[in-house]
Design a binder for these strands. Structure first.
Lengths: 215, 215, 215, 215
DNA sequence: AATGAATGAGGATTCATTCAT
DNA sequence: AATGAATGAATCCTCATTCAT
């Protein structure tokens, strides 16, 4: 008795999105279990029953949010690198897009992290990370092939990049870190060095200039 | 009426450890909320009421488990590097010890990760990771000071190392990866390169030999 | 604001009958409580709101269906015996008509039976069965008076007949029985013997012939 | 996650029986759907949660009641005929036992009737009736074999008996009938005649005497 | 006539915790 | 130490009905 096929009017779609957005905030702030259905509907200003008009149950809503977030992130990354052909530049722009997305959607990122620890939802997130790694690994392989990077296991290297990016995203989200302006540059450099490249060549002139001025 | 001071007989201590061990497995597998007190006692083969003889409540049990795990990990790392004076070697041995510990206690690591996402328990874990990063950053700073590593923000670099180690630990735990034998070497190399070092110098003779034979 | 007086267009009447027919099937299959308004409208392919255009509420719809069914059954029986003057022949034709009706409307009969068990609806049905028994008892009394049947309590005897007929109707409906062709004859014989008559005299020539050929 | 195997103390068994007994009364009086779990526990004077210590859920409780009732009835019948060897006497004593049981447990009988109309529970009841009919049919076949009854389909004849007995039981339960003293005799006579026997031979001397005195 | 959206009272079920023995 | 029984607040979800368009 899935809800996949329900036809919604314009108003219906808006209401559903509103509920998802309110729910995402609450889930991120208080966690999945501490957030009650009634909190969600109250926060949207509607009656309890309406929740079940749009969602099968609380779990299904959570899944939808996770999927939407995952897909949004991937789209943002794709948009960021679409004009770029140089492999390492694609990687570095992808990193920038990821951090940017997470910065603008910190609460969604918190939610993703939690989802990753719950057996019920873990597959949604792991699969997403797998996709990320695969994307990055293609650029790495291209760079290896054209001699820009030394030989190595592209897939493992890609995971190294993903690891670094998401770890720092978390640090930033939890306010454990504040070098905001130079952080992007630092992460990119760490990753590129990790891959075996010389990061100096791929950091944009503007950023490099900024760093020197600040230092 | 805290439970700190309860004196237990030998049998009592054994029973308590049994309950903690079963609980850790269940918490790791299903998460804190999905694991019910009754699951824990059933899995230990005792009656429900007995749980409250040994633990103040479910949350207290979880805290005890998290603390014990965190401290075990820290101790394992400390032991691993105690005889080593070279900064980069300390880092690389620390990485090895971490991966080793996680490999032997996968379910406990899953539990730590979950705890990190829950507001109630996050402080128990974040603090630990902070300590990790601080430890590593001291070695990094030492290496920078003696010229082994190029100049950089030791704290950020340390987080890069921690990020990589724990990300791969998770991958291994979720069976997304299988290059078991070379994985440690790969991670160490990625981190050292990220720090700006030449990893070839710090990989143990045995590992290097093995890799060359395999390649 | 009762709904008695609503004027319906031709299309409206068709739609209402469609809803009643679908509802009857669902009620019969799953019972009154387990059948939701939404099941009814879905099964008719219309929107939920429309239900309340045609029916005051779920209970009113059920009542309408029960009354219609009860009256149909009564009419079928009346039609079956109207040309017959011999008391026992009237009884036997009534039995035939009842079984025939139930055979053609099994789901409606199930519905009647259920209604009989619900305090809210029992009166609609019990009264009907009472009428049945009264009808039969008049024929029985007539037969007693003219000496065709031995003396006895006509009302109780009538209930014996009604009991037998409806019990077998149910058996047939639940597929617990399959002697389809000879069943009518068997039931009639059992009832007539129960009344104290010799059934051989009242079984139609056609049936008797059929039985002998089969035997 | 069935509850079959739960071990109960003496106190536990008593509490469970108390709950079943209270529930049976409420179900019979108000119906399955109108009876809330809270009504049951209130009526037993315990907390709501306790219900789920003893029963998986409301449906499981209802099933248990139905099964217990069915089995009690069958046991009562078995006890009634155990000393009797004459087939028709066994039938007549079985009828007496059934009516007696139902008379003493009217509310349970109401419950059985309702259960028979609900898809979810119907099989429990139909199966029971099938068993009844099979029991009776064995006596009928024995009587046919020794020439006491004319030839016929023992199984169908048995259903005729069951039909009559249960129909009158219902009439009595719904107070539509009041010839209390002679009712048993009437039913027995109707059934035996239906089977093709002469009931005079099997009605006990006491009953026959009573009837003549009353007439 | 017809639709999809919205309401909210109502009921089942869960589960941490406490109690009596 | 250990058990099974008992508690009750908390929360999910259902569904008949009403509303706005």
């Amino acid at each position: 008795m899935t809800m996949q096929t329900k036809k919604l009017t314009r108003q219906g779609r808006a209401r559903k999105e509103q509920l998802m957005s309110e729910a995402a905030k609450l889930f991120a702030h208080s966690g999945y279990y501490a957030t009650r259905v009634i909190d969600i509907v109250k926060s949207a200003g509607v009656a309890k029953g309406l929740f079940y008009w749009y969602f099968e149950n609380k779990e299904a809503l959570f899944r939808e949010i996770v999927k939407a977030t995952r897909d949004d992130l991937r789209r943002a990354q794709a948009r960021a690198i679409e004009g770029e052909s140089d492999p390492l530049a694609r990687i570095s722009k992808g990193i920038e897009a990821s951090l940017d997305f997470i910065g603008r959607n910190e609460h969604l990122y918190v939610l993703l992290r939690f989802a990753g620890t719950q057996e019920r939802f873990a597959s949604l997130v792991e699969e997403a990370q797998e996709v990320q790694a695969r994307d990055v690994s293609q650029h790495i392989q291209a760079a290896i092939d054209d001699g820009t990077l030394p030989d190595g296991d592209a897939f493992l290297l890609a995971h190294g990049v993903v690891a670094t990016v998401f770890h720092f995203a978390r640090l930033k989200a939890s306010n454990s870190i504040d070098h905001d302006d130079q952080l992007l540059e630092f992460i990119t450099a760490f990753c590129l060095r990790g891959l075996g490249a010389n990061p100096e060549l791929y950091l944009s002139a503007r950023t490099r200039a900024g760093r020197k001025a600040a230092g």
